[in-house]
Design a binder for these strands. Sequence first.
DNA 1: AAAATATTTTAGACTTGTCTAAAATTAATA
DNA 2: TATTAATTTTAGACAAGTCTAAAATATTTT
Lengths: 220, 220
Amino acid sequence: MTTSTEENYLKAIYHLSTGNQNSVLTSAIAGSLSTSSASVTDMIKKLSDKNMVEYERYRGVKITRKGEKVALSIIRRHRLWEVFLMDKLKFKWDEVHDLAEELEHVSSDEMTRRLDAYLGFPKFDPHGDPIPDTNGKVHTNGQVLLSDIIKKGKYILCGVNDHSPSFLQYLEKKGLVPGSVFSIVEMDEYDNSMQIIFSNKKSIFISKEISKNLLVRNHE
Amino acid sequence: MTTSTEENYLKAIYHLSTGNQNSVLTSAIAGSLSTSSASVTDMIKKLSDKNMVEYERYRGVKITRKGEKVALSIIRRHRLWEVFLMDKLKFKWDEVHDLAEELEHVSSDEMTRRLDAYLGFPKFDPHGDPIPDTNGKVHTNGQVLLSDIIKKGKYILCGVNDHSPSFLQYLEKKGLVPGSVFSIVEMDEYDNSMQIIFSNKKSIFISKEISKNLLVRNHE
DNA sequence: AAAATATTTTAGACTTGTCTAAAATTAATA
DNA sequence: TATTAATTTTAGACAAGTCTAAAATATTTT
């Protein structure tokens, strides 16, 4: 079995792994979990002993298929609880993350299955992130980072990569929530910022820092 | 703040306190938590430092008003989650205890409040135990142990004091669930056993061991 | 390629919660 | 009441997870 501390490490390593297939560096994990590199090294050894990660001293870690499955099951629970908190308990999308962070460690496959059914088998959480299925498969539906887009056009916001309340509140103020449809009208080559316009003609400016955290999909 | 281990100790002490106002002995707590007396002594010192219990060496502990408030808030969460698991996720009454034992430590007053509202402000959990209100007040509604009953008559089963799956399954097989109405037809002075009869004329025998764990109320 | 810098790991210590075995205290018995 | 028995506490140790400071390894700069 895995402790909730181990689960948090695996989740962090999994998230840092997606996108780049390189090893994840100790310092990156430490930063992401707000802990010291020394602690990370200790835990990595433990996870390596359990075959959850492949570890090479001074070279970082790669998550194994086994570790990934654990991470995905935690992420699945996390996102299902987020849906519960928002749909049923009427929390706002910037309030659910921290609570789900606690609920995700209650480990019962049966409960997770029933929760899933009770919520109507949702495919995405309130932030637009896909909910892994029972087998740990993630259906991304062709989402890409807005910062990776090179062609002007019409897009729909599917999700975010930063779940901090402050970021979410910022987005909401700008009118950007999952489902928002907008067109890119201007892209600045120099600082990678862009200008977008909503269907209601309202136009806003988006910096590189923001667009790096927005998941979008082509719209039409 | 309290750790979930501290919370489990406080809950155990609270439960062992109700009924008798004497001090709770170290060994009783150890038994209830399946741990050693030495561990209990250690934790009791910690809880005493936090003014959660009054401790006298070799004499046991008394829970303080402060400790009781913590215990009751945990019990409130526990029972609300039990209602959720049974009403919403359709678990059976003998399956909810262990899961609620984990969920109860997710500590957010706001979430508890919303959960309470979402469930329709239930007053009792699936085992018939009263759910403490926000202020930590318990409304027992005049429930007493069946083993304390001295007068024959008609009673209704409101709850149980043993939440183990095996006990609950035993009761269910006998036709005893919260809400069951029955009449005591015979009471044995010698072994404190009794014979009861349901409205459908089915009659069963109840030993002292069983009746000690059944909460009943006068019916009419 | 050697020196300087940054990162990672080790070493040793701390906290929480646990244990066993021995000492202290209380309760029971003769 | 003195001795025996039972219970409780202390003492010392362990595991998990964390930390700081020092040593080891990598990376960057000159």
